[in-house]
Design a binder for these strands. Structure first.
Lengths: 334, 334
DNA sequence: TTGAAAGCGCTAACAT
DNA sequence: ATGTTAGCGCTTTCAA
């Protein structure tokens, strides 16, 4: 099925050497007008396509960057991806693959790095340990975005999750609320971002002289259903929270739904704040107040830094924190 | 930064020839136990990784399949992707890239095919013409999924959109409703699936002796906002529709919101049916009744067929239609 | 069973 | 300005 026309065929057809053909393809150095024309014609006639594989083999680079997503259905990644693509600026092709949060899948994907199929990798939520990641970083360009890994020394771009949660909770408290709930993820599926948000939540209480109440901390997974259950739990409490911070917008939507099933209106009877600022926030009823991550900037920042590292063939393990913001919508005034 | 240990280094370290090393790597033919061990040790010691690029160049295949998505934020694709990944069964790596519905981006991505970087491509929503696609198909393995292209002769897996829309509308009418609205996309951004859903809508009216009313057909884009506007438009009509079919779930959510802003309750005052069955349907209030596409099966089917084509080095331009179903939730009883 | 050597298609140093 | 040629790292005949 494949017709395989190579640079050699083109050279023969154009009556020149392969070197000349290579030169006109890459515009590397001066070639006579007429030869250029002859070569171009031959390329057209034969329908020649340079074999990128061979090119890459020779040049020892691919101009591809791999982005590993934990899942395909978390709309938050979409913004980051846009930033990454824009930052790559057509100089690198961005290829995406999904780990489904499986360690073995992530490792299989990172093999593209060791297999010389991509020049760098950006991971948005890794299952690897800091030590494992550092090991990869010894030989390859690799970075993290939006979700860090403890004890790793990779280029990492994210927001200050602790500070962000602290600020949200503090604003609840300052507005006169003294019972604030938290919907987060359980121990088993915990991520550093969630851990830090929990820390921020606790600190905010502490700073304001409030003491934490384990009843007010719900630990489930990242699903909508978990948010629903959390709301059911909270609403049944003798001393229910007046406000709830959720570590994702999907959880916030679930909480709103759960409360609504109990006849409790978010934004009125209870204040609900999410995290991330995904499109759902504007679509939901009530619209969802949330801690917004600058997804686009995060993506753009990480790709720009990694490209710089590639070009200079260096390794910078810096952590870059970008500013979050709080977007007020209907589900909470704070 | 890169340590580059090649098969040659391994050969030297193990005291064998490169051919032997290659043999133990690929398990191609018999090698003495002791040499196998020596080679394995050398590989370990040197931290050797085969250069996939060179491997591919030699074998003239990559074991990668490219999936082109029109956008990263349409959660419907997530199911298809899961099906594709499962169907690839670890035999092929699935790499995803986004065209953002730009023709030139799509072409740039398809260059991976001509550049010998992937063995096949699956497009979920193409901007290319049938003729252009057929041209690619002459030299490469390429298929469409969920969204066809008129006059193309590629392997295509989708549902019968016309029949699906017809059925939904017919069920509305049979339930006693005689004014049914349609929220679809405008001429400029029309896709064959939307066109066919419109056809089905019109046929259903026709079969039931109803005549189409242009007032009842809203043409916007695929956005939530377009659904909102449609609802505002419909609700202001002298003879408003009692039921509305939307060509996507996001549009349905928008319509529900738009109606709600006018004090009209979906599922009670008006019946709203979406298309696709994305996770949002279960999260929204009211939950969204929808025409469900078997995303997972569609993905699995298309990848299985394309892999078969690759292996047999043939080209089958068949169109495979999978069955849809209607999932009843709160926004419409039909 | 093993090794030498010829490529896969391309680039780049060297020569002319 | 152009051609010759030696690789990039791997697989795979062909001999031994």
């Amino acid at each position: 099925m494949f017709v395989n026309v190579t640079i050699k065929d083109v050279a023969k057809a154009a009556g020149v050497s392969v070197a000349t053909v290579s030169r006109v393809i890459n515009g590397s150095c001066a070639v006579t007008e007429e030869k250029v024309k002859a070569v171009r014609e031959a390329i057209q006639d034969l329908g020649f396509n340079p074999n990128q594989m061979a090119h890459n083999l020779r040049k020892r680079e691919t101009k591809n960057i791999l982005v590993i997503l934990p899942s395909t259905d978390h709309s938050f990644y979409s913004e980051i991806l846009r930033g990454i693509e824009d930052g790559a600026n057509h100089e690198y092709d961005i290829i995406i693959s999904t780990s489904h949060s499986f360690l073995h899948t992530e490792i299989r994907l990172l093999a593209m790095l060791t297999n010389h199929l991509v020049d760098a990798a950006i991971i948005l939520g890794s299952r690897l340990s800091g030590a494992q990641l550092d090991e990869y970083a010894r030989h390859h360009h690799i970075a993290l975005c939006s979700e860090g890994v403890e004890d790793s020394h990779l280029l990492t771009v994210l927001i200050d999750n602790e500070k962000a949660a602290l600020e949200a909770v503090d604003r609840f408290i300052k507005s006169g609320i003294n019972r604030v709930g938290l919907i987060t993820t359980g121990m088993e599926i915990s991520a550093p971002s969630s851990d830090n948000r929990l820390k921020g939540y606790l600190k905010a209480l502490d700073y304001n002289g409030l003491k934490a109440d384990t009843e007010l901390i719900w630990r489930g997974d990242y699903s909508f259903g978990s948010g629903v259950k959390a709301a059911h739990h909270f609403s049944a409490l003798r001393q229910p929270p007046q406000a709830v911070l959720c570590v994702s917008d999907t959880l916030a939507a679930g909480a709103i739904k759960g409360y609504s099933q109990k006849g409790i209106k978010a934004g009125k009877d209870v204040q609900i704040c999410g995290f991330d600022n995904i499109p759902l926030c504007d679509m939901y009823s009530p619209t969802i107040t949330t801690v917004s991550q600058p997804g686009y900037e995060m993506g753009k920042t990480v790709i720009e830094h990694i490209i710089k590292d590639i070009k200079n063939d260096i390794y910078t393990g810096e952590t870059i924190m970008l500013a979050h913001s709080i977007v007020i919508r209907e589900s909470a005034v704070l």
